[in-house]
Design a protein around this nucleic acid. Structure first.
Lengths: 143, 143
DNA sequence: TTACCTGCAAACAGTTTGCAGGCCG
DNA sequence: CGGCCTGCAAACTGTTTGCAGGTAA
């Protein structure tokens, strides 16, 4: 079993929960994805492999992913939650094209350092952050 | 008439729309606020001065604020839009306490510069960004 | 066996929209 | 006077929840 999936099943067992076929399937499909996934996307993909799975189960399982540390919820400001695996991928931020919606993920340790400094300057102990840069991508700039 | 309010009425007239009492009231109440305001907050405040105003009008007027450049929509990831005046206040980002929800607004030109550089490095022309830092505020750290 | 889970559908919260009447310009 | 606006309520969208039956351990 892959590492991330094992981490999930361990979490489940450790908390007296059950590692059901649905949870396994949802986790497998989710972990296959490199970037982020909306709940609906994930639901559609899961249903392609087992059409009997309910939407509520997907929602509930995604919550479980977050609790277990397997996934993280991210928001792009369009009133729809998205999730990304925090097991395979490292922390990153988002660069989003306002023309075509293309998304680039990046990480800049210099910015990260400044953020922590800034939080500290305000007396805060920083635990996490979200950063979204919006702009026009190379392809859209040519149009 | 205050500058920001004038900007709004100008925009309205310029687009062949009407500067109605409701729009005026909503704008006045909105502009009175220093930080950000949820739609519901604004609705409640407006109703204290004129209880006949409908919720839909507040929603529609907030959209109009955004179109006119008077306000900007911001998201904190709790599934509820908030708006802040872009007329009186300069651009800023948010530092949010995960303990008590306290919010500090800040602006750091060093970070801003790095963000633009980064976007450019990816071929993007940056137009805007959102940055949210989450952490524990001084008061909550002591608990 | 017995929690815990599931799918379903109803419930929810925030937001949008259709409509009949009202009012600004 | 005519087109834009309004309040109301119904519709919508993403998400959550109650329930009765099913199932992992």
């Amino acid at each position: 079993m892959k590492q991330a999936l094992k981490q999930f099943s361990d979490y489940i067992v450790a908390n007296g929960l059950k590692f059901t076929p649905q949870r396994r399937l949802i986790a497998e499909v989710f972990l296959r994805q490199v970037g982020h996934l909306s709940t609906e996307d994930l639901y559609d993909r899961v249903r392609k492999e087992d059409s009997s799975v309910g939407q509520a189960t997907v929602y509930r399982t995604l919550k479980l992913f977050c609790d277990s540390g397997l996934a993280k919820e991210v928001h792009f400001g369009d009133g729809m939650a998205r999730y990304e695996s925090s097991a395979n991928t490292n922390h990153h931020d988002h660069l989003i094209c306002i023309g075509c919606g293309k998304q680039v993920e990046f990480m800049d340790s210099e910015i990260e350092k400044l953020q922590e400094k800034l939080a500290e300057r305000n007396g805060f102990l920083m635990t996490s952050h979200h950063m979204y840069l919006y702009g026009v991508c190379p392809a859209c700039r040519k149009k």
